[in-house]
Amino acid sequence: MKLAQLLDKTAAIVRRDLLTAIRYRTGFLITAAGAAAELAAFYYLSRAIGPGFRPDGVDYFPFLLVGTGFYTFLVMGINAFLVIVQEAQQTGTLEILMTTSTPAPVLVFLSAISAFAGNTLQLLFYLGAGLLLFGAPVHANFLGCVVIFVLSLTIAVAIGILAAALQLAIQKGSALVWLLGSGAWFMTGTLFPVATLPRPLRVVAQLIPITHSLDGMRMALLQATNWSALAGEIGILALFSLLLLPFSLMIFSYTLRRARLQGTLSFY
């Protein structure tokens, strides 16, 4: 596929999602109001706890801000893959999309780019509002932030493709997102440091890539950590990316072929 065609298709998908989002008028307002209420709640929670609590050596409010903002960004991104397949099944567009000249993995990937673009705007709004309105201090290694962001994004894409595959295979990709959203979040250091967990859970936490995404992002954004200190997290995230992305694409292709064989492509 030529680059111009790829860009053309990306623009078409972004335009479709934007138009759909705009036409669900209240959605925008509810999301913005929800984010603002969350920020305020975290701000007053950190004040109530007091300045003595400094997890990983930073103030609690910026710790929460980066943890919840980045965690939500990653989980929402993963969820986007699932929603793309789920909605296409429910609106009946999945089967017909799978017969267009655009290969299915490319289609899912481009749809996710669109979803991640929207989520990135939300993340910037969330972090920006937290930093400007509530005065969270920033000492950033910006390039480090970008590297951690890109690697975390790659991992989220891979897990998202796995969720989409699960949705195709058993129509229950939501189980994976549920596991991340409710079963694993407390182990990733979103609201409190992983170090406070009992030892067995700390070991499990190290096996969840998002733990390293949050650690890395906090170090790069709040503590201006130098490259040698960031190298550990970057290495782990790169390893997860290298393993998860090809694995998830392989699983997705397999489940898609299986759904075509079993005639379950449009089941939901």
Binding site: Q5, Y24, S101, T102
Partner: peptide, 27 residues
């Protein structure tokens, strides 16, 4: 392929927008 089912379009896009979208995916 013109499928028999009605449920195969994006409901909050217009007819023109739907056609333009699928035409893009079909190169």
């Amino acid at each position: 392929f013109a499928v028999a089912t009605e449920r195969s379009f994006f409901p909050r896009l217009s007819a023109r927008e739907n056609l333009d979208f699928f035409a893009t995916l079909d190169d």
